[in-house]
Design a binder for these strands. Structure first.
Length: 431
RNA sequence: GGAGAGAUGGCUGAGUGGCUGAAAGCGCGCCCCUGCUAAGGGUGUAUAGAGUUAAAUCUAUCGAGGGUUCGAAUCCCUCUCUCUCCGCCA
């Protein structure tokens, strides 16, 4: 969440920055507007309530002392009967105001960083550079490639669970696992991340800590009878490992990589990418997470981005690096770079990794703090990014490494993870 | 799933209605003593909010939420989590 003090001292500038996300962010019925008006109200009630409580505490102490000394305290007791009632009433009002304010505050998105380009949607994103040579010949869609090879099976996925689920078979399943291992090894052994393995279910508090709740409950799978959800990304459990902790400066930077399955309801994307593995309800991802000193956030973002890039380059997949414009930023992000991989069948680049700095936004929400030079706790900065989305990487390999005879070559870096397999071939053709 | 025990500050651990934000010990910070790796002494050591130039001071927090009371870490209720035993089980 945004910093509450800045809300009072810097509201004009913040509002300007928020406008860049889109005008509705600061509309009259927006959380921003509510927070602004509720702030003063909440503080007034709180102060009033505290004054009464102070009074109550003082007299209660007096009563205790008088009684201890065997003196008569009936006058104080009578007086306190009234005060206590008022105190309780005001306390409830103050708490209600605080809850309302907090809810508003939790629904305000992060302030875009100054270096984020203006723009309304993905069309205004800024291309930074491209790498590799996009393949321009005619290549079938990955679902055709995969089904022809007998390694992708969408019908069975639908039979088992519904649309947007799939089954991987044989070399396809192996490739999924190979990618997972390859990425984790690379990040853990070369890039200096400590590997963690975490729950794929998170409770409400945890989901709130990284910003998925309260606003985006519809995007999540909720568990029946429990206030818990399937995680949409490893960012949620990994970041929240440190929730409500005060870290020592010497512990930073904290760097974790994690493989998890990810679950998304894709509520708002009906009709988009309905075929194939691009947009599934369940997919695998290796995630990179860093916790750093606030002033190092953007440096860490560059570093983390380079780690995601290293995977793409090791797999020799052509990609494009994009700086997201303010209108296309995610709710919690202050700045995001997307990595888009070339998909020849679609003749375009498609997102395969999203690397973001959240500044102190998540640190404040999740109560993750670090001591500064004076020993005062302040919210840590968090950075995370896909390193990479595995299903989409598999798609990119099928298409970019597809051969005219229907086979798919295994990228050299992956061959050791495929038991030395160099090429996936159709078993029927082989015979 | 059944039965029981428990949840206190960075840690260990006292505290069963009033001057306890919390004894004591450990750890850690600073100072002193001592010429030599030891030991001793003093002092400080939660978070958030309000307040102040800075203090002082005030409020909240002893797993979470609610209740009883003038007053709760202490009593009552609900929930969560941990531990032990039983059952079941990858």
């Amino acid at each position: 969440m945004i910093d509450r003090k800045s809300l009072r001292t810097d509201a004009v500038a913040m509002e300007e920055a928020l406008k860049k996300r889109g005008i509705t962010t600061v509309a009259e019925d927006s959380a921003w507007f509510k927070a602004l008006s509720l702030d003063a109200e909440q503080r007034r009630l709180k102060t009033e309530s505290e004054n009464l409580q102070a009074d109550r505490n003082r007299v209660s102490k007096l009563i205790g002392m008088k009684k201890g000394a065997g003196e008569d305290a009936s006058a104080e007791l009578q007086h306190m009967g009234e005060v206590a009632k008022d105190a309780k009433r005001l306390d409830i009002k103050a708490k209600e105001a605080e809850a309302a304010f907090n809810l508003a505050l939790l629904e305000i998105p992060n302030i875009p960083h100054l270096s984020v380009p203006d723009g309304r949607d993905e069309n205004d994103n800024e291309e930074i550079r491209c790498w590799g040579k996009p393949r321009l010949d005619k290549v079938p869609d990955h679902w055709d490639i995969g089904e022809d090879l007998g390694i992708l099976d969408f019908d069975t996925g639908a039979k088992l669970a519904g649309s947007r689920f799939s089954v991987l078979k044989g070399a396809g399943a192996r490739l999924e696992r190979a990618l997972m291992q390859f990425m984790l090894d690379r990040h853990a052994d070369v890039h200096g991340y400590e590997e963690v393995w975490v729950p794929a279910i998170a409770n409400r508090k945890t989901m709130t800590g990284t910003g998925q709740l309260p606003k985006f409950e519809d995007d999540l799978y909720r568990l029946e009878g429990e206030d818990a959800f399937l995680i949409p990304t490893a960012e949620v459990p990994v970041t929240n490992m440190y929730q409500d902790m005060i870290l020592e400066a010497s512990q930073l930077p904290i760097k974790h990589c994690a493989y998890t399955p990810c679950f998304r309801r894709e509520a708002g994307s009906a009709g988009r990418d309905t075929r194939g593995m691009i947009r599934q309800h369940q997919f695998d991802k290796v995630e990179l997470v860093q916790l750093v000193q606030p002033e190092l956030a953007l440096t860490a973002l560059d570093e983390l981005l380079s780690h995601a890039i290293a995977i793409l380059e090791a797999l020799e997949l052509p990609y494009r690096l994009v700086n997201l414009c303010a209108g296309d930023l995610g709710f919690s992000a202050e700045k995001t770079f997307d990595l888009e991989v070339w998909l020849p069948s679609q003749n375009t680049y498609r997102e395969i990794s999203s690397c973001s700095s959240f500044g102190q936004f998540q640190g404040r929400r999740a109560g993750i703090r670090v001591r500064d030079g004076q020993g005062k706790p302040q919210a840590v900065a968090t950075i995370n990014g896909s390193g990479l989305a595995i299903g989409r990487t598999l798609v990119a390999i099928l298409e970019n490494y597809w051969n005219a005879d229907g086979s798919v070559t295994i990228p050299e870096a992956l061959q050791p993870y495929m038991g030395g397999l160099k090429q996936i071939q159709n078993k029927n053709i082989q015979k």
